[in-house]
Structure formats: structure tokens, C-alpha cells
């Protein structure tokens, strides 16, 4: 095989929400993208992004035609990055109020935990990512109130995790797609490349 790398193909769930903003960031980072509105759109992706928006609206679509179950299986074997509502969908447990979730990441999330839109804020906080403090844009954001033993915290705000990873899943309670700081998306693309390298090694 040639060492030249093909551009990654990343799916962005486009039932509703900030899918455009994720696509713009992926373009900057040299990845190609595909909007995912139906289960068949998942075919052949290298990774998947579940964007911010309204998780109740997204669930409404996932409840149609068995999409929920397809996605539940899919995220077990494909690197997946959830932001805000996407993180809520990935969580093991959702509160404030309780709702169904994919149970792909061992965290508990409280919806709208920081308040309404007037409480939205931009925050610079510590992270394990190389470089200066990470800019985190919080819009009617959820809070991660519990992380399981396999979950690694990559960034936090006032002691609450805001960026977490476990296995193939990355989740942020803020919106890196609304920031000019692309380190979080870069972290996800690295995770996707790593997963591909691991899969190739296993096949040999």
C-alpha cells in the first residue's frame, strides 16, 4: 500500500442542529464529510459526529425505522464524537429530565445544567491537550455529573468534566465546532486514524 493517506470520511448526524458548523471545521482540517439522515448513510464512514442541537428532537428521529438500535450497535465499532446534545445521546444515563440514550459512554449527564441561553458562556479552561488553555463555548450546556472508571477526563470546568474519552467514544459538553481552536476535532481525527491503524494491525 502507498503510504499516502486518503482523507478521512466523517459522517455528521444531520437530523437537526449544528451539523453545518462541524462540516466547516472538518473542511479546515482536511477531512471529507457526509450528512447522515438515515441509517444507510452510515455505510463506509471512518468516524461519526453527533452534533449539538435538541436531543429530544434527535431522539424523535432515532425512534423511527429502528435508527436508534442501528446507531447503538454502530458506535460500538466506529469512532464517534458527540458534542452537547450528541454527548447526551451517547451517555449511559440522562437526567433533568430523564430520557433514553445510546448508553455508549459510561457517564451521567444533566441536561441544561448551567441554565438557559442567558447563562451561556465562553470559558477558557485547563485540558490535557497540548498548547494554551482550551476555549470552550457553552450553549445551554449539559453537565457531566458522573464518570465511570473507564472514562478519561481531557478537560474540565469548575471541577466538572467537559471533554471525556472512553475507548472509541469522545464527548464534549461544549461546542468546539463554534471555536477557531480546532484541537478537539484534531484529537477526534487522531483517534479515528489510530483505530484504523489498530484494525489494520489486527488483520495481519
Amino acid at each position: 500500500m502507498s503510504p499516502a493517506r486518503h482523507p478521512l470520511l466523517i459522517g455528521v448526524l444531520a437530523l437537526q442542529g449544528a451539523y453545518d458548523a462541524h462540516v466547516r471545521t472538518l473542511v479546515v482540517l482536511g477531512a471529507t464529510s457526509r450528512l447522515v439522515r438515515l441509517p444507510l448513510d452510515l455505510h463506509g464512514l471512518d468516524g461519526l459526529i453527533l452534533p449539538g442541537g435538541e436531543s429530544t428532537t434527535m431522539l424523535h428521529f432515532l425512534d423511527r425505522n429502528g435508527f436508534f438500535e442501528v446507531l447503538q450497535t454502530y458506535v460500538k465499532s466506529t469512532p464517534t464524537f458527540g458534542t452537547c446534545a450528541g454527548a447526551i445521546l451517547l451517555a449511559a444515563r440522562v437526567e433533568g429530565p430523564a430520557q433514553r440514550s445510546l448508553d455508549a459512554l459510561d457517564i451521567t449527564v444533566e441536561r441544561n445544567a448551567y441554565g438557559r441561553q442567558i447563562d451561556s458562556s465562553i470559558f477558557f479552561g485547563p485540558s490535557v491537550l497540548a498548547g494554551p488553555p482550551l476555549e470552550m463555548v457553552f450553549i445551554r450546556a449539559p453537565r457531566i455529573t458522573r464518570t465511570g472508571p473507564t472514562v478519561e477526563t481531557l478537560a474540565s470546568r469548575d471541577g466538572s468534566p467537559t471533554l471525556v474519552r472512553s475507548g472509541l467514544i469522545l464527548a464534549a459538553t461544549f461546542h468546539p465546532e463554534l471555536s477557531d481552536d480546532h484541537r478537539v476535532h484534531q484529537t477526534f481525527l487522531t483517534l479515528v486514524r489510530q483505530h484504523q491503524a489498530d484494525a489494520t494491525r489486527k488483520r495481519r
Binding site: A18, I122, R140, L178
Partner: peptide, 24 residues
């Protein structure tokens, strides 16, 4: 935080919510 003066932070947060409301 947006509670202070009016600057780009406030506008970014406003546009951020508008972005979340797309496609619905």
C-alpha cells in the same frame, strides 16, 4: 461571560444558539 459589556463574546453565543436551531 455574556453578562458584561457587549462584545464579540455575546454575539458568538447568540449565533451559537441560532446554529443549534438549524434544520428544525
Amino acid at each position: 461571560t455574556p453578562s458584561g459589556g457587549i462584545g464579540s463574546t455575546t454575539l458568538r453565543l447568540k449565533l451559537g444558539l441560532a446554529e443549534m436551531l438549524k434544520g428544525g
